[in-house]
Design a protein around this nucleic acid. Structure first.
Lengths: 238, 238
DNA sequence: GCCACAAAAATATGATCAAATTCTGATTAG
DNA sequence: CTAATCAGAATTTGATCATATTTTTGTGGC
């Protein structure tokens, strides 16, 4: 996705049976990933004109994508029609930890009741890639695979409302997570996925919820400490 | 706001010092209220063309408003470019109850720590109007004033992340709430606001949280029972 | 019941207008 | 004489609309 530039290349012939993805959704997905995986730094400005050049799309679909991301908390309206990637405050991170702890453990419990062997296999495959990214020290891959693991669990839980909240939380701490990982590398990162997988196999909702809560809290606390420390975010724009 | 039709009438001269409100925000606010206070029934379709006629606005701002409401859970994408007011399922209402209970009590606790005497006065004034609406049997006024009470509490709490979640939850049960109230009238509606106000005056976070939790759960359970009963929603579209 | 055609609605683009930021240069205080 | 500040011009950016294109839906003939 990085550096490809324009959208829609290679899809000029439309008599294929491939389902057409609307431009506004493509822009949304691209911008969402950019925020989620830290390609945009906290405080960085996001302009409509810039996205027009970057994506080659028209103005309307870009506006739609920005509105969507804004109400999901990925972007922030800064008064004078300026849109930026929000910067985390300590107050905000406390609420995010609380939310993620609460929502993610409930999602995990739901998932434990509905999970199939195929789902477990998929989760194990993703978790193996998480491990690989950690040993390789590949921050970007870790962020993507770790998200994929949690996202898969949300999908299994099949609870749209909770999933929306969880995704919004991810979008809000994503940029800071990247900054923290960039500083610390991948060594101290949490991975309680194995415990969760064992609990999932046993279809034990309570244990699954506890394992995921542990995983979540560990990760979020690292961001919180970096925020309190302050040095990690000294280079961000304002 | 009802029945006024076109937007932006009477604002042709722009040398006033009145701050200009963008059209997409006006459309958003209008549509948001329509969902929140049950002017649109669950399952009802929302079309771009319809809104163009209804509001007199152009296409782009309407699209933006719809995208925003969609990611806030007030509207739902139904496959073939069709947007509808979502219908609540029993699974969804359970998650909404859980979320509102959790988030609203935390917001209440935050508010208790920061509240001023002016805020308390404002809350008491709103609560008086809630009482008046109940005795008058005015469902529409009850819905608006009750929301105003909670919204004021959110504003005092000053926790943007939690407030976004709470507002999203409101948008998701709003339409069904209206259906339920339309059936039952205003007599059996909960109002634990007095207890909450006492706790707020004492700046007791725990008691405030408990009072609000009680208020919230009572209201949500009524929707849940109506959903299980099923008769209340038999006339909705789909 | 199925396919073709017509009408309606949604997506996407570019043009136009308005507002805000930035840039420039001059004036003035230290 | 240098540096800071402010006014106004120029550029950039956002908001809105009108229009073209594509997709879906609805209808009538076979």
């Amino acid at each position: 996705m990085e550096g490809t530039g324009k959208l829609g290349q290679g899809f000029e012939h439309r008599d294929e049976n491939a389902t057409r993805v609307p431009v506004h959704q493509q822009v949304y997905a691209q911008l969402r990933d950019a925020v989620l995986f830290g390609e945009l730094a906290p405080g960085q400005a996001v302009t409509i004109q810039g996205l027009i050049e970057r994506t080659g799309a028209g103005m309307t679909p870009i506006r739609e994508a920005i509105r969507r991301l804004t109400s999901e908390g990925a972007l922030e309206f800064r008064g004078n029609r300026r849109v930026v990637v929000p910067m985390l405050t300590v107050d905000a991170i406390d609420d995010l930890i609380f939310l993620r702890e609460t929502v993610e453990s409930r999602l995990a419990a739901h998932a434990a009741k509905k999970i199939t062997t195929a789902d477990i296999a998929a989760l194990e495959k993703i978790d193996a890639q998480v491990d690989e990214a950690i040993t390789r020290g590949d921050v970007s891959a870790y962020l993507r695979q770790n998200f994929a693991f949690h996202a898969k669990l949300y999908a299994v839980a099949n609870a749209p409302v909770l999933m929306d909240v969880a995704n919004s939380v991810w979008l809000r701490f994503g940029p800071s997570m990247r900054v923290v990982c960039g500083r610390m590398g991948t060594q101290n990162l949490p991975d309680n996925h194995k415990t969760a997988l064992d609990a999932l196999k046993a279809k034990n909702a309570q244990e699954t919820a506890d394992a995921m809560r542990e995983d979540v809290v560990q990760g979020m606390e690292q961001i919180r400490e970096a925020l309190l420390d302050g040095t990690a975010f000294s280079d961000t724009i304002d």
